[in-house]
């Protein structure tokens, strides 16, 4: 083995997070530990192959390496699902630096299953979806590119039925399906810059990378244009209805969010990134098709949410 490329030592852990999924698709915790070596090998191969066309080889270590090179090569233009997943992992890691996951295995498993019931009725069932509660009293939810969905404890506590949980998750799934945030990140060159940094053969400054991750995360906190939110409301309602949930549950959630703001809940970030609940309710009124109308029935799963809360499941 030749000496490591000098850039490798300067790459911080989050670049590793960026590269890992691109490289392997799914990384296990152990793989994170082996990151340094893998990254080193990959970049070395890239340097060696840079004078010629990349020719994927099938040697034991070359398989993963060639995958990485392929990903880096085709992330320059167009959408790339691995890149999107990748980006989402980096943003999720960053957000988890501020939020703790709710420390309740049964509750997290419940949210994960309900999310997957809805997501599998959508257009991107194969994404590595994760639906988790994060520990904050703020009322909000996030759809991170690649399929990581955060719902805050504060929002979860407003919910009374599984139908309402499905409605919230449906809205977030719709954002991911439509690549709303991913597109903004691409438009603002965050994605390109991160890919360039990953592919760079010169020393990558860790501060610069940190800035890029901050910019990507900032996009999660800044909000989309209102039309995208209305779109996610309509799609989310459809996805929840497809899964068998009460199509009207999103409307009751919006009413409760509206009421919670008046009783002192922290909805500041939600309100700064979304149209008002009243405006969303009003817009949904124009989107109710006969199919949705007949799907506005309390589902047989509605009461599971309270049963889980009561620990009776």
């Amino acid at each position: 083995m030749a000496a490591r490329h000098p850039s490798v030592r300067a790459l911080p852990v989050f670049l590793g997070v960026l590269l890992l999924v691109a490289w392997a698709g799914t990384a296990t915790p152990g793989e994170l530990d082996r990151l340094g070596g893998a990254l080193s090998d990959a970049l070395k191969k890239k340097v060696q192959g840079s004078g010629t066309t990349t020719n994927p080889t099938k040697s034991s270590s070359g398989d993963a390496t060639s995958k990485l090179v392929d990903v880096l090569a085709d992330t320059v233009q167009g959408d790339n699902q691995r890149e999107e997943i990748e980006l989402g992992r980096g943003v999720a890691a960053k957000m988890l630096g501020a939020y703790d996951l709710v420390d309740d295995f049964a509750l997290q498993a419940y949210v994960g299953k309900v999310g997957m019931i809805v997501a599998t009725r959508g257009e991107r069932p194969g994404l590595p979806w994760r639906f988790v509660l994060v520990e904050t009293p703020s009322v909000n939810a996030y759809a991170i590119p690649g399929g990581v969905v955060f719902v805050t404890r504060g929002l979860y506590e407003l919910l009374d039925t599984e139908d309402e949980l499905a409605a919230v998750l449906g809205h977030e799934i719709a954002h991911v399906q439509r690549k709303h945030h991913y597109r903004v990140m691409k438009q603002q060159n965050v994605v390109g810059a991160l890919s360039d940094a990953a592919a760079s053969q010169v020393t990558v400054d860790s501060e610069m990378l940190d800035t890029l991750w901050s910019r990507a995360t900032e996009i999660m906190t800044r909000g989309l244009d209102k039309a995208a939110e209305y779109e996610a409301d309509r799609d989310g309602m459809v996805l929840a209805a497809r899964a068998g949930y009460d199509a009207s549950a999103l409307l009751t959630v919006l009413e409760k969010i509206g009421a919670s703001a008046a009783t002192g809940s922290d909805t500041s970030m939600l309100y700064s990134t979304h149209p008002t609940p009243a405006a969303r309710l009003s817009a949904l009124g124009d989107a109710i098709t006969p199919e949705l109308e007949s799907a506005a029935v309390v589902s047989p799963a509605a009461w599971r949410l309270k049963q889980i809360e009561a620990g009776t499941q």
Binding site: L96, G115, V132, P137, G154, S214, R215, T217, E218
Partner: peptide
């Protein structure tokens, strides 16, 4: 949740990435 405030946009953008918590999240696949 009355009267309590959560995490701000700045808290998120300035957070130090938590890869341990990311691993716990990724272990929760369904």
């Amino acid at each position: 949740t009355s009267g309590t405030r959560g995490i701000s946009a700045e808290d998120l953008t300035e957070a130090v990435p938590d890869t341990d918590e990311l691993q716990r999240l990724e272990a929760r696949g369904v």
